[in-house]
Amino acid sequence: MVTTSPSDPMTELATPVESPAKASPSTKANNPNPIAEQDAMIEIDDVSFSYDMGKTNVLKNISFNIPAGKVTALIGPSGCGKSTLLRCLNRMNDLVDTSKVTTGQIRIMGQDINAHDVDPIELRKQVGMVFQKYNPFPKSIYENVAYGLRIQGIKNKARLDEAVEKSLQRAALWNEVKDRLNSSALGLSGGQQQRLCIARTIAVNPRIVLMDEPCSALDPIATARIEELIAELQEEFTIVIVTHNMQQATRVSDRTAFFYLGELIEYDDTTTIFGNPSVTQTEDYVSGRFG
């Protein structure tokens, strides 16, 4: 069932509707709800990606659209390329010198993000990221949240105070830390540190928040709080979350994409993916038969 050819209908299913030629298969059962171009925040179009200057591709001809204002989960077994794809979305992979997008385009708000006139710094200001292991800076809580604003050149204390308070409130952390904003962020519990990282990310008001297994290092209670937070944040941000935990995907996401060995196997509403997947591999994975 695994397919590698780009012309295979399987991968074309997820391509944007813009092309009439490719639009026809989208009526197939495994992708009944394609995202219309105008609703798409992120359009991923036939993207292949390599870490070794194109010798081997870790992502192979991925195409799908991520809707605005929704939570999209990327699932799949380890090494399937989901984190790599996530890191392509704000060009964090640029940090690896030999990395390269070999084919296709990623468009965010209609703009090809790998175009030469795109500044990755500006891109990252709009596409924030929360990491697998919480990584607050070794600074105070306040400075952590204010960091993104400070590097944008905002020095006004009142504005910073306001933004810090608002972000911490939105991250549901304000009540816990309001009395010790100036103490070190490293003194917080793991769950609090991760929420602080979320607050730090949303303080700069990005359009999109990427989350790379944000709960994998947390205990169940802290995980639950982060999941609640994601549900609340969904109203303001487009969220793309990579997760290993399928229950989490069902709990937080609207749409789910399943990856396997660098390919997109299936992409649909979360309920469909978990309730009635059209591809057997997806079914095998979500029911825990491998992965």
Binding site: I108, M109, Q111, I113, A115, D117, V118, D119, I121, E122, L123, Q126, Q152, G153
Partner: peptide
């Protein structure tokens, strides 16, 4: 229009 155009040239 490119929303990610390099903006703050002072910083650059």
């Amino acid at each position: 229009m490119n929303p990610f155009k390099s903006s703050s040239s002072a910083q650059k």
